[in-house]
Every structure is written in structure tokens, then in C-alpha cells.
Amino acid sequence: MLICLPPSEGKTSAPDGGAPVDLAALTAPGLTAQRETVLDALVDASAREDATAVLKVGASLADEVARNTRLRSAPAAPATEVYTGVLYAAAGLGDLSGEAAARAAADVLVFSGLWGVVAPTDRIPAYRLSMGVSLPGVGGLAAAWRPHLEAALAERAAGDVVVDCRSAAYVSAWKPATTGHGAADWVTIRVVRETDGVRTVVSHHAKHTRGVLTGHLLRRPGPPPTSAAELLAAARELDGTVIGTEAGTGLSYRMLAAELHEATGPRRPHTLELVIS
């Protein structure tokens, strides 16, 4: 099993006094040279007068963009403490211990426009950069990272199931092979809400539900799934359980069913549809 996560949009700064990031110590050291290139370009872009426009963020985030200029000296913390969005809160990656923590270290990768990928325990500073940005001197980040991520991840994904919780911009940076030598069972996660027999795609609940599934896959007893069929069986262990509470209303929602839809063509993923009420 390889679980692919997006970074959270908002990030929590590490406590003052911590050691800065050590690029060579991050997961997939073959990415170090490209990380250096992207980091240098981000620092330069963040010092420009039009930095917020280059990084495609609003003026209210100017302080976070300015923080990018100090990334080489900024304190770092484990990725599970820096990424703190809805998905990460639901997954509880920072609360894992024992076998579950070891499984997360081996089976979870967070995709990043700055780092390429990091593992939950990799120490990084808070930063502001999305994969959809085109950095001066580097170009579109998804395209810039693609050959490097393919070289770094192809062998890891081969013969395994890739549980893909990423958004489209991060998917475009790396797609596992689904045919031929080194093929993987690639499965994207879609969350829908069923009301009076009608299913609709949801957004906030989708992030939370993907986080719940991630946490379940890491904590459940027994070996992790290695195929789409085994992933479906593991997801169905959540059927009927309450998986969240709506902010404001206090109403809970539960998992109704998990269904697997086959890929529609080569280099296309299967889709695991999680139905909530």
C-alpha cells in the first residue's frame, strides 16, 4: 500500500529554536538536487514586489509569502505537525504509535510543490507554494517535478496498490504505471453524499472522509492491502460507522457503502467511491 496525500493549504509553523530543514535527510534523497533548485527559485520569487501574484495567492497572505524568503533558516518540524488541514486532523497522523506509526512512515507520502514528496516524519518548515504555480526559472511545478518523481517512485509503487487522495494538480505531477512491467493498482478516492437516493459530490466532507480512510488503513490490524480488491474490503470495514460531525449543526454523518469502479482505460485509475449519509 502506498497512500498519496496532498499537502494542507494552511501550514503551522514549527516552534522557534528548532533546527532548519536538511534537504539531504528528506525521504527520496534522489530528489535533493531538484529540491535545491525549486527552493532557490521560491526564495527569489517570494522577494519580488509581485510575489503574491507569482505564487497565485491573495494579498492577505503576503506575510506567509515573505516567510518563504527565510526557508533555509526557518525552524523545521515533522510534516505531521506542519500539515494541519481537515484531512490531516481526521487521519490523526501525529497521534500514531507503534505499528501504525511504522506503517505511516513506510506507506504514506505527502506531495508538495516545494519538496516533491515527504514522509510524515520528515522535518520541514512551513511554506506557501502550491503545485499549480509556475515559478520563474523553473516553470510549471507539476511538469518540473514529473520526471524526478517518476524516477523516485516507480519502483516503490510497482506491484502495490496506490491509494490516491490527491487533488488534480498533484496527480498531474506523478501518475503510477497501470500496465506493463512495474504496474500498480492505482485507485483514486471519491466521496459522495446520498440523500433520498440521490448522490452528490461533496468537498469539505470529502477531505475529512479521505482522512478517516487514511487513518483506518494505518491503524487496522493485519497486513495492509496490496490490491484494489483488498483496498475495497478494508474500506468496507467502515460501513455503518459514524465518521464525522458537521460544524455548526452538530449532526453526525456515517459511511453507507464503499464501491469500486474499474478504470476506463490505460493509465487511468480505478475509483473507490465512499458513500456517506
Rank of each mutant, 00 (worst) to 15 (best):
A89Q: 15
V65T: 00
S46C: 11
E81D: 14
R35H: 11
R48K: 13
A91H: 06
L31E: 06
V38K: 07
A41D: 09
A62M: 10
A59C: 00
R72P: 02
A91T: 05
L31Q: 03
G30C: 03
V54F: 05
A41W: 10
A89H: 14
E36W: 02
A77I: 04
Q34K: 15
A51S: 13
R35T: 09
A74F: 00
T32V: 12
S46V: 08
D40Y: 00
G30P: 01
Y83M: 12
Y88D: 09
L71M: 13
L42T: 06
A89K: 15
L42F: 06
A62V: 14
E36H: 14
V86W: 00
A47D: 13
A66P: 01
P75L: 11
Q34A: 13
A90T: 09
A91P: 06
A66G: 14
G58C: 05
A91M: 03
V57E: 06
A51Y: 05
A76Q: 03
S46T: 06
T84N: 13
D40E: 13
V54G: 05
G30E: 11
G85M: 01
A47W: 07
N68D: 09
E64D: 15
R48M: 09
D44Q: 14
A66D: 10
S73H: 12
E36F: 02
G58M: 06
K56F: 00
T80R: 04
Y88F: 15
A66Q: 12
V54L: 15
A76G: 08
A66V: 00
E81H: 12
R48F: 03
L55Y: 00
V86C: 00
A79I: 08
T84S: 15
A51V: 09
V54C: 07
S46Y: 06
L87S: 07
A91S: 15
A41R: 10
A45S: 14
S73L: 12
T84P: 10
T84A: 15
Y88W: 12
S46R: 09
R70F: 04
L42Y: 10
E81Y: 01
L87Q: 14
E49M: 08
A76K: 02
T69G: 10
A77Y: 02
S60T: 13
A41H: 10
D40Q: 06
A41F: 09
T37E: 13
A59E: 14
D63N: 11
L39D: 09
A90I: 11
A91K: 07
R35W: 11
T37A: 15
Y88M: 07
Y83S: 09
V43F: 11
A77Q: 03
G30W: 02
R35F: 11
A90C: 10
R72Q: 04
A89P: 01
D50Y: 04
R72Y: 00
D44C: 02
A47E: 13
Q34C: 11
L71A: 08
G58P: 04
R72C: 04
A76W: 04
A66S: 14
Y88E: 09
A59R: 12
A74Q: 03
T80N: 03
G30L: 01
T80K: 02
N68F: 05
T52D: 13
Y83H: 14
T37Q: 14
L42I: 10
E81N: 12
L87T: 07
A76N: 07
A51W: 10
E81T: 05
T69M: 09
A89M: 09
E64C: 04
A91Q: 06
A51F: 11
V82Q: 03
A45L: 10
L55F: 01
E49G: 15
P78W: 01
